[in-house]
């Protein structure tokens, strides 16, 4: 019972002091608001970038060209050989007839031209479309496939893919660094702002100690107050990012610059971002208050 009583008093006092020290609370709140907006934007950018990277990676395909005039007994051994390779995610067989049909569907000119071709005239080859699990080993895997009997050569955009992968890696590392750096700077900023507001209440803390409040009793209202500041401070960033991302997404119709760069669909994504922003606000507010109030307690 005593715990509940103390808890409700703590929450009540926290709200009271947010409003009684409103100008200072406003300083903390705006500090949290601004930094959370920056954090949210960088988070959205990073996650979209990661998503884009993932989509591109999934798109990379090795085309395995099979030798012309291959005997069907040899051709039958190719698929099991491919399946035994550990780095291969999926295999799709494309016969030369199918290749021809696909080509014909693309263009009327091709259609007229190719309609007359018989099975023997068809210059296309049978092929396998192979997707790999680990794109970083694509070079190695392609070489292994090339050695399979009956395979003429493989095609996967060698060189281009490697450059793409290494630049993705770089961008990913950089974005993680940026987010971490931002989080650290944010915490530091907020800790200092809250320190300032608590400094002005040194007297209050000393009075609490004088009348026999235990250290926990003194700390708790400040920590809860930090939490309240964090929650209030995250309202505007949440509205901004949710609404802003929706507008952004709709304006660019879900893709940036070219159809290759797809944006993450807003529906669950913005809720997730909002949650992250809220939790970050709460944690940072609590942490800031806790650290600041500890300074004024002899422990």
């Amino acid at each position: 019972m005593k715990i509940f009583r103390m808890f409700f008093r703590t929450v009540r006092d926290a709200f009271k002091s947010v409003f009684r020290n409103f100008s200072l609370s406003l300083a903390s709140i705006s500090c949290i608001t601004i930094t959370l907006i920056i954090v949210a934007i960088s988070l959205i950018a990073t996650l979209n970038l990661n998503n884009f990277t993932k989509v591109i990676k999934e798109d990379v395909t090795i085309i395995v060209w099979i030798k012309k005039d291959i005997e069907s007994s040899i051709q039958a051994t190719i698929e099991p050989m491919l399946k035994s390779n550990k780095n291969i995610e999926s295999i799709e067989y494309k016969s030369k007839t199918k290749a021809k049909e696909e080509m014909m569907m693309q263009d009327d000119y091709f259609k007229r031209l190719m309609e007359g071709w018989s099975e023997e005239d068809n210059p296309f080859r049978h092929s396998y479309l192979v997707k790999v699990k680990d794109i970083e080993q694509i070079h190695q895997t392609a070489k292994e496939i090339e050695k399979i009997n009956g395979v003429d050569y493989v095609d996967y955009g060698a060189g281009m893919v490697e450059t793409l992968i290494s630049s993705f890696k770089l961008v990913q590392k950089a974005s993680v660094l940026v987010v971490i750096a931002l989080a650290v700077v944010t915490t530091f900023l907020i800790v200092n702002t809250i320190k300032l507001t608590i400094y002005s209440r040194k007297r209050e803390i000393s009075i609490m100690r004088l009348v026999g409040a235990s250290n926990t009793t003194i700390k708790m209202p400040f920590v809860v107050e930090g939490m309240v500041l964090g929650i209030i401070g995250s309202i505007i960033p949440i509205i901004c990012t949710t609404y802003g991302y929706l507008v952004f997404y709709n304006h660019f119709k879900g893709q940036l610059l070219s159809p290759v760069i797809k944006l993450i669909t807003p529906e669950p994504f913005i809720y997730m971002i909002s949650l992250v922003v809220l939790v970050t606000g709460i944690i940072v507010g609590m942490l800031g208050s806790y650290r600041a109030v500890r300074k004024y307690l002899k422990v």
């Binding site: 020290n21 000393s206 100690r209 004088l210 235990s214 250290n215 002899k298 422990v299």
Partner: peptide, 24 residues
């Protein structure tokens, strides 16, 4: 100990020259 100071503070009352009230 420092973190147990409240134990003695609860047993006594203290009055200062400058009152030390919570202004708000």
């Amino acid at each position: 100990r420092n973190n147990k100071v409240y134990k003695i503070r609860r047993k006594l009352g203290i009055v200062f020259q400058d009152y030390r009230l919570l202004p708000k």
